[in-house]
């Protein structure tokens, strides 16, 4: 769990720092809200809700980051 938890922010920070203020930032509040609400609708206890929400945030964020990296790679040199 420890490396997976750190993977997303470690990868995301330099990419987003390099990309600058783009519309991608608008995704972050949505990812957080969706993860928290979805997890809350599945579970009852606050610790479990927060743990599941964090995992979902990392999953969504990691997927988006992978797509972002792919698009950056494809657009290199254009």
């Amino acid at each position: 769990m420890f490396p997976a938890t750190l993977l997303f922010p470690l990868l995301a920070a330099p990419v987003w720092a390099w990309a600058g203020p783009t519309r991608t930032w608008y995704a972050i509040p949505l990812i957080i809200s969706i993860s928290l609400v979805y997890s809350a609708s599945r579970h009852e206890g606050p610790p479990l809700i927060l743990r599941r929400a964090l995992r979902l945030m990392l999953t969504i964020g990691g997927f988006m980051l992978a797509l972002l990296l792919l698009l950056l790679l494809l657009s290199r040199g254009t």
Binding site: L30, S33, I34, V37, Y38, A40, S41, R42, H43, E44, G45, L48
Partner: peptide
């Protein structure tokens, strides 16, 4: 739109409780 859709989940949670529990 997403706010509205998320509230659908919350409404079901209020009606029937959480889907999985703990």
């Amino acid at each position: 739109m997403i706010a509205g859709l998320l509230n659908v989940l919350a409404i079901f949670d209020a009606l029937y409780g959480p889907a999985y529990g703990d």
